[in-house]
Simulated assay, not measured.
Amino acid sequence: MSTDPATVGAGSAWPDGYDRVLLEETDSTMAEARRRAPDLAGPAWILARHQTAGHGRRGRAWQHPPGNFAATLVLPHAGDPAQAALRSFTTALALHDAFVARCGTRGQFALKWPNDVLLNGGKVAGILLESLPGGALSIGIGVNLSQAPTAELVEPGATPPVCLAQECDTLVPPQAFLGTLAPAFARWEDQFTTYGFGPIRTAWLQRAARMGETVTARLPNTELTGRFLGIDDAGHMILQTSAGPRDIAAADVFF
């Protein structure tokens, strides 16, 4: 029987089988992951104190002020594309646990489909998945630990950014945050590989933002507005629109 992993404490030990690479500076941890992936025998975290060319979804620039968190986890064997895509949910759950462990308050945090973590309604973290040759997957994670991005980099109507230091009055160094996040991810990954997506889906829905509320999903050629009903077994958003329920595989969501 599966269980919901307990919140990982700030002092949890580094997980067995996971390597880590600590860099002072790189262009982006995602690019570093692409370069290093062919030589990795197992999963590895890559953390950079500074990125010169960080990016988010659809190539959007990702600011990296001093003290913020920028890391990529490389999973050499992530399964088929559908399985690999579900890692956005295990990663979001791990981030949620790490934030709670560091801030001590669960109610402040929520998970926004498909790949953001919210703190007091603002975006504190984002997740970016990228398939690599040979079935590997890179999971890029950006967290506003010390500073939030400036307003000009935020798309109109998007969730405003916030930072952990201001909202929680807690300043966590990036390497210390990785020390909390990595064991949290390892626990959720173990849940996923052992029991499948079912327990992950249940846990994610328990932490989901705006369940049952009206949201807008922006697709490449259209926008759909409706009531957010949850996610299905493939991780797709279920949106109740005026024309009936819609299954949405990928979109930008606006509240």
Rank of each mutant, 00 (worst) to 15 (best):
M1W: 05
A10R: 15
A13M: 12
W14Q: 14
W14N: 12
D19H: 13
E25G: 04
A37I: 09
A41F: 06
A44L: 06
W45P: 01
R49V: 09
A61E: 15
P66C: 05
A70Y: 10
T72N: 07
L75Y: 06
T91P: 01
L95N: 03
A98G: 11
V100C: 08
A101N: 04
A101Q: 04
R102H: 15
G104H: 07
T105P: 09
G107T: 15
L111C: 02
K112T: 01
D116A: 08
V117I: 09
N120F: 01
V124T: 04
S131V: 06
P133Q: 14
G135S: 06
G135F: 06
A136D: 04
L137S: 05
G140D: 05
L145A: 00
S146N: 07
A148C: 10
P149V: 08
E152Q: 11
P156H: 08
V162E: 05
Q166N: 10
L171M: 11
P173E: 01
P173D: 01
Q175H: 11
G179V: 00
L181G: 00
A184D: 00
R187I: 05
D190V: 13
D190I: 13
F192N: 11
T202F: 14
T202L: 09
W204R: 04
Q206D: 14
A217H: 03
R218H: 12
L219C: 11
N221I: 09
I238M: 12
I238A: 02
L239W: 04
Q240F: 11
T241F: 08
V253E: 07
F254W: 13
